[in-house]
Design a protein around this nucleic acid. Structure first.
Length: 503
DNA sequence: CGGTAGCAAGCTACCTTGCTACCGGTGCTGTAGT
């Protein structure tokens, strides 16, 4: 079979992008495949085309509702109507109807959470699933252990669906993460298809500043000078919002904040405005970005450093999809690593909380079968967050674990927490190492992903002599120059002081 | 850890300073009625 003609027939394209053909060939040969393809190279096609050529149905596990909706839209654009996103956007009536007619759909999108619902799984077991796709598969490793535990259940679910042919897709995964994905999905004889994680048109630039105030100054200065559009990443919702209002109020650019605390409608609106060029800058938390297909993002600034190098690479990878020069700037001031450390610690329950819980359980809250009676009251009393509580439930609610080793249960939980925390702190530490590096930043990243750097990139990084001036805007350069001559420090001081007086 | 809100004291009549306590990211979701 000539794959190119099928591609032309269904999608109208003449040729494949890097990696696509290898992945599709491997799937059509009936081999489980783990594909690491760089962002923006059309990962979806890797299951869209085989899906059309294979007999049965295609189940696609996707991490975000908005991502599913986008992909359904994409299919409809190509004229494929046998597509459904089986999620909570459907009303109860719609969901019932869809479940009764599941066999009519060729492509079914679903979240790990929905897939873990027994009733839904039973319905899916009736189908003939010819391909099980895990999109953004690094989520298994990144989220499966705590934040979204249903990600760690995909392996078991795969089995219950009769071990269908599986395709795991990701853009950024270290060797360790890739091994974790394979282990978690319980795949043997897997074909691994890697292409480089490198994005040569994105330059790296790290700047060290004494404190947050200097960082604010610097962000304003950079936004004024750099070619737009761009994204500024923050690790707190509040600072993202503050910066967005500052940029807007001072008429520096059209900016909006974007984070998980905002309602779904505003999020969709802001995302659309940014994509269609009605906004210049997004001040965002890590909630922003997955599934953003905007070609011409020129800069990514990090006001705070992310929790790990993979996240950093995903975030900066949103720049320069059009292949034109783009810049990734990270601002660091001493002690910045404390925020991610704090976030990591607060995600997991503390040893004291676990201690308290087991003491309580010994006193009263025990079920007839010896398991702890975990109820909302205990969660509130112990000061557990939803995520912390779910982690506890994963262990305490596991009958096999509880009956096999009741006296060691507390120790097992504590060991898990310690191990997770150490892992997260190690990731943060490596991120900090990268910031402090005095060697080529790109080489460091290649090394982190066990990839060999074959040749020098021209506009590589600050260490290799990259000049920020090369990324200046051309349209506003005259006004910027005037202000620069006047005295930048004074100008910025004015902006910030005015802003404070306003309060 | 480091930023900051909120309050009380200090100082002066409305504003500054100082202390303390608290907070900080990512998303999905079947259940009611027998």
């Amino acid at each position: 079979m000539e794959l190119e003609s099928e591609l032309k027939k269904y999608f109208g394209y003449d040729s494949f992008k890097t990696g696509q053909k290898d992945v599709i060939t491997s799937i059509l040969a009936g081999r489980h495949t783990l594909a690491m393809l760089p962002t923006g190279t059309g990962k979806s096609l890797c299951y869209q085309l085989p899906g059309l050529l294979l007999k049965g149905q295609i189940l696609i596990i996707s991490p975000l509702l908005s991502l599913m909706q986008d992909q359904v839209e994409q299919f409809k654009k190509f004229g494929e109507k046998r597509v459904i996103a089986l999620n909570s956007f459907l009303t109860v009536a719609e969901r019932k109807k869809v479940l009764c007619n599941l066999s009519k759909y060729k492509f079914i999108f679903i979240s790990p959470e929905m897939l873990s619902v027994h009733f839904i799984l039973t319905n899916l077991q009736e189908l003939n699933i010819s391909l099980f796709v895990v999109d953004e598969a690094h989520c298994i490793s990144q989220w499966g252990y705590d934040f979204r535990p249903d990600y760690s259940k995909l392996g078991g679910i795969r089995k219950q669906l009769g071990n269908p042919l599986t395709l795991a897709l990701t853009a950024t995964a270290t060797r360790k993460v890739r091994d974790d994905i394979i282990r978690s999905l319980d795949l043997d004889k897997i074909v691994k298809i890697d292409s480089t994680i490198d994005r040569p048109n994105i330059g790296f630039y790290v700047e060290k500043l004494p404190d947050y105030r200097n960082k604010q100054y610097r962000v304003i200065e950079l936004v004024t000078r750099l070619e737009q559009p761009g994204i500024i990443y923050f690790s707190s919702k509040k600072s993202a919002e503050q910066m967005a209002s500052l940029l807007m109020d001072k008429q520096i650019c059209r900016a909006m904040a974007y984070h998980g605390g905002m309602d779904q409608n505003s999020r969709i609106l802001i995302q659309q405005q940014f994509i269609h060029g009605q906004l210049d800058v997004i001040c965002a938390t890590s909630a922003f970005g997955m599934g953003i297909n905007k070609e011409n993002i020129r800069f990514i600034i990090h006001y705070h450093m992310p929790m790990q190098i993979e996240s950093y690479l995903q975030e900066i990878g949103r720049a320069g999809r059009d292949g034109l020069p783009s810049i990734a700037i990270l601002l660091y001031s001493p002690g910045d690593e404390q925020l991610p450390i704090q976030l990591a610690e607060s995600e997991l329950p503390s040893e004291q909380q676990i201690d308290w819980l087991f003491k309580k359980a010994n006193q009263q809250h025990t079920l007839p079968d010896g398991r702890m009676n975990l109820n909302k009251e205990l969660m509130t009393l112990g000061g557990f967050t939803d995520i912390q509580w779910r982690i506890v439930e994963e262990f305490v609610g596991n009958p096999a674990l509880v009956t096999r080793n009741p006296e060691r249960l507390q120790e097992i939980i504590n060991d898990f927490i310690k191990e997770r925390l150490l892992f997260k702190k190690t990731n943060i530490f490596r991120m900090k190492k990268w910031v402090e590096s005095t060697l080529c930043r790109r080489a460091f990243i290649f090394d982190y992903f066990d990839e060999k750097m074959l040749e020098q990139t021209p506009s590589c990084c600050d260490i290799c002599g990259l000049q920020l001036d090369d990324y200046q805007t051309t349209s506003k350069v005259s006004t910027v120059k005037n202000t620069a001559e006047e005295n930048w420090q004074e100008y910025l001081a004015k902006i910030l002081i005015n802003c404070e007086l306003r309060e």
